[in-house]
Design a protein around this nucleic acid. Sequence first.
DNA 1: ATTAACTGATACTAAATTAGTATCAAATAA
DNA 2: TTATTTGATACTAATTTAGTATCAGTTAAT
Lengths: 140, 140
Amino acid sequence: MKVLTKNTDYAIRALLALAAEKGRYLSAKSIAAGQDIPYQFLRTLLQEMIRHNLIVSKEGARGGFMLEKDPDTITVTQLIEIFQGKVQVSECMFRKQICGNRSRCVLRHEIMRIEQVVQSEFEKVTIGKLLRDLEAANRK
Amino acid sequence: MKVLTKNTDYAIRALLALAAEKGRYLSAKSIAAGQDIPYQFLRTLLQEMIRHNLIVSKEGARGGFMLEKDPDTITVTQLIEIFQGKVQVSECMFRKQICGNRSRCVLRHEIMRIEQVVQSEFEKVTIGKLLRDLEAANRK
DNA sequence: ATTAACTGATACTAAATTAGTATCAAATAA
DNA sequence: TTATTTGATACTAATTTAGTATCAGTTAAT
Ligand code: FES
Ligand code: FES
């Protein structure tokens, strides 16, 4: 079971690259090369992140992408929701056949509790935190 | 993002049905009908669970499947591992390009911590617990 | 003995999701 | 005016998930 798909994975890496160069425009090409992400794939991801107001872009020569938001406000949960949809354990695991009473289904509560845990764990992981961890590791 | 796939979902439901009738053989046909699971699909899942010693079977007329293990010892984590592979957040999210030092990669630790949380949450959910919740809900 | 109701084993197809590519128009800096 | 860059969007390929089909062998009941 793989929790993060490539697009989320790549998006995080791209954001880390942008966060590391905050205030400057980085081209998709340079990010792709630096992080070893397929160029055209990365471009679609960057555009998606623009739509969600995580980054901004400048067109034309010397253009590129830039992070404007505080990296500590961007969580992995947000990125999962953008690229993989909301965290859900199972659509509706035990239907009428088992549950009978969907409105106060105990199992459903169990399931939703876990969804909550997963979500909040990933919420603790922000781009800012990852970047600091990374820099700390590189200093060693 | 869907955490549980159909096979895990169906397997849990099948096990609940078997746990509810402990000591008796239930045919794949009756489980399929009762839980609204595609018959042939269910059969492959049941065989997989036999291979993993979660259930036993009896061939021939009046045969079927039976749960021998204590339902409280069967966790959803186990089932996820059987049907979806071990929980892993991402193969190796930030390779050499970012990480540099893979052996003591801080990010990797972060990732593995979350894997651990997810796993242990699902470990709390056993077939026994689900069955009791279910019965309690039905009594209402 | 024969037959109906079963599982064992395994191969196959279909649908959905994930991953990646390609193209062309428009913007901008040099 | 040209090289470099993003915007928009459509497309293909690979992989995973979901589901089906087949046939051999076992057992209980008649
Ligand atoms: S009714 Fe959907 S999980 Fe209970
Ligand atoms: S080296 Fe793989 S996550 Fe850091």
